[in-house]
Each structure stands twice: as C-alpha cells, then as structure tokens.
Amino acid sequence: MTIALVSLLLTIAALWAMARLSRSDTRTARLATPAIFGLLLIWLWQAAVMGFHIPRILLPAPTEVVSALFSHTAMLRRDFVQTFVRSVIPGYVIGCGFGFLAALAIDRSAFLKRGLLPLGGLISAMPIVGVAPIAVMWFGFGWQSKAAVVVAMTIFPMLVNTTAGLAESGALERDLMTSYAAGYWLTLLKLRLPAALPHIFTALKLNSTLALIGAVVAEFFGSPVFGMGFRISTAAASLNLDVVWATITIAALTGSLSFALLALAERAVTFWHPSFRNPS
C-alpha cells in the first residue's frame, strides 16, 4: 500500500519534472530528462516486484540484480574476459581490418565494385550468426570460434561502407589533386580516405554492436563453461535470473561504452563533417 502510494507520488513528480525540463534546452536538461525517466522505470520495476510479489523466476528486482553483480564478481569478470577481450576484440579488429583492406583492393576495379557491393549488402542482411555451429566445428569450443563468427559478421558492413566512403570525394576535389599531379596513393591518403571517414565510422559503430551479438549468440551453440553467452543461456535455464540480468547489464554497459568511445573518436577525427558542425 505504502509502495503504491510512494510510486504514484514519485511518478507524478517525475512526470512533472520531465515536462518542466523538456522545455529547457540546456545540456543539463537534455541529460537529466532521460536520466529521470530511467530512474523512474527502475523504481517502478522494483516497486512492482515487491508490491505484486513477482516470483524471482519471472523477474528479479533491480536490487537483486545489483547484489548478483557484487556476489558473483569473479565469475562475471571471467565471462567478460572470455567473451569481450578474447572473442569480440580480436574478431572485431580482424573483421574490420579485413573489410577495410578488401574495400581498398576492390576500389581499383569498377567491375569488382559493381559485382561485390550488391552481394555484400545482401550478405549483411543475412542471419550470419547462423554460421556459429560451423565455426564451432572448425575452430572448437574455445574463443577462436567466437572470434571467427565476429569476423564473419563485421567484414561485410565494413567493406560496403568503406567502398561507399571512397566514392564520397567530389569530382572537383579530385580534379584539384590531379592538378597537383598527385598519384593514386597520395590522392587516397590526402583526399579520399579523410572523405571516407564518416562512412568508416558508421561501420565501426555498427560493427561494435554486431560483434558483441555475434560472440554472445555463438556461445549459445557451444562454449567452454564460461563466457557471457554461456552464462545467459545456462543461468536462464536454471532460473537464476538475477545472474542473467547481471550479465545482460554488463553486456549493455560494454556495448554502450564501446559505442561511446567510437563516437568520441569519430567526433575527434571527423569534426569537420556537417553532422558535427555547430550551426553558428
């Protein structure tokens, strides 16, 4: 009863605060509004679990998730290292690197570009995670097979976006380079790669999410007895939902932080792009 009353009052207060804040355009207001919304949701979640006595096997309360984060620290860290450090990062680097180099290679042939781009776009839209069982057969249960899935998932988005980016520089700018008698590589380095950067970052950001999905889902098909995907599937099967939510929390934080880092790097490198310029 008290919980319901407090929740009602808090909801009204939060709605009022958000309505007030959304009229202001300051940076603080822009950050505070979603923060209040998130906190309200977490409170309502907590209140619903406590108030309606929702069984733990359906939905653990946020407090239980937090306590799982602290009571299983060693296990969760091992899972994180296995999945993110050992599988995602190498797979991401190899996949993005290879996709980038492949784009440079096919860029010199208009025929290859016309042949590969539609196929690359189509393959990007395929459920590539499905290759996970194959990867497990080829590379075993360890991190190598997960990294292979990540490579398979990240390579084509990078190939397609880099190729699009390399076509970005205008005829005028290219003519300018020609007038300087700049050769292919000099033009690539001074003009076409910088112009392609926004597209390359689009792929890098997209791939950071795809890589995490690839590694986690690949573990559903077979893995050693640790790893975030393994943890989620086994803890869900044994109804330890607090551990599942704790792992999901870590996965979500990892995903957003990776994305945020890439976004910061993008801002630093492509500050000149219209999407970042201040309208002043």
Binding site: K205, T209, I213, V216, I232, A236, G255, F259
Partner: peptide, 16 residues
C-alpha cells in the same frame, strides 16, 4: 538501445 546486444535477452525471454 541500438548500441546494446539486445539479442542476449533471448534465452531469458523464452524461459520467462
């Protein structure tokens, strides 16, 4: 939410 691996919740949704 586009930056997080939402697919990870699949096993839990199925179980719940």
């Amino acid at each position: 939410s586009q930056t997080i691996p939402i697919l990870a919740i699949a096993p839990m949704v199925v179980v719940v």
